[in-house]
């Protein structure tokens, strides 16, 4: 019961705190302007290079921008605690760690789904891209699963923030790494074998593939293998992140690094 309270109250407070500084004047250019121009940029490169259609780039990038909420959101959640010097207070509390950080993840997943929906709207409004209303539920499932797995991946980065100060370096590397490795803009068969092997264990790769098939008229049943694969990767990262959190928390206590910023 106490865990559920920590999950709900902690998550709501954390998200409100995130938006304490992220006012609309910051949210709109960062969270909406960024994805808008990212999608347009890659779609025009696609047109110039003659590789793939607008739909390929719209779907790939509309799914990938969920990583903005997942990876950067988590980095800001942990990094923000460090800057406001509340990290040690949070970690000295007896609260269940799993409930504590899961509560912080849920609003980020919702935010990621909103960003993704915005990305699809951008594609429909400005590019040669259409979506049949019948595919929307299946597409929403792809978006939610992928956003959740990206957020789990983001918690790996967040755990580093318990120990290291330059968390945004790691977050940025992770974000652009996903852009390169996961078949977002470059078809997977264009990548060298070693990059394809890495993409298999990263979030996004299977979610993007599933979303492309669904946007092309496929059913949820036809992509269930990809969705399950994406979800399994997310669960794997969530577990790894939990243990990393505990390990870095212990290291942070030992070395008294929580208040370094």
């Amino acid at each position: 019961m106490n865990g559920a309270r920590v999950f709900v109250v902690g998550g709501v407070l954390s998200y409100r705190a995130l938006f304490g500084w992220m006012q609309p004047v910051v949210y709109v250019p960062t969270m909406l302007g960024g994805p808008l121009f990212q999608i347009l940029f890659f779609a025009y490169i696609g047109r110039a290079s003659g590789v793939e259609s607008d739909a390929f780039f719209v779907v790939g990038n509309a799914i990938q921008v969920t990583a903005m909420a997942g990876v950067f959101g988590v980095a800001m959640t942990v990094g923000g605690e460090r800057w406001t010097q509340t990290l040690s207070l949070v970690l000295v509390s007896p609260a269940n760690r799993f409930a504590l950080f899961l509560g912080r993840a849920l609003p980020l997943i919702v935010n990621g789904a909103i960003l993704s929906a915005f990305g699809f709207v951008v594609g429909i409004a400005f590019l040669d891209f259409e979506l049949a209303p019948s595919v929307l539920p299946a597409l929403a499932a792809c978006v939610l699963v992928t956003t959740a797995s990206c957020t789990a991946f983001g918690f790996i980065i967040g755990s580093i923030g318990l120990y290291a100060r330059e968390i945004f370096v790691a977050a940025n590397l992770a974000y652009i790494g996903l852009l390169l490795f996961c078949g977002v803009n470059v078809p997977l068969d264009e990548l060298p074998a070693w990059m394809r092997a890495i993409s298999e264990v990263l979030p996004l790769t299977h979610g993007v593939q599933a979303a492309r098939l669904v946007a092309d008229g496929g059913t949820l049943g036809s992509v269930d293998g990809l969705i399950v694969h994406e979800a399994a990767i997310g669960v794997g990262y969530a577990l790894a992140a939990y243990f990393l959190f505990r390990a870095f928390e212990a290291a942070g206590r030992r070395n008294a690094t929580f208040d370094n910023y």
Binding site: G34, F37, L40, F41, Y44, I45, R47
Partner: peptide
């Protein structure tokens, strides 16, 4: 808060300046 606008201007300028697409 203009830094948020500055952060957003990467892609649009890359696009408008024709750096990777004419």
């Amino acid at each position: 808060y203009a830094y948020a606008l500055a952060n957003m201007l990467e892609y649009p300028i890359w696009l408008a300046a024709g750096l990777l697409a004419p």
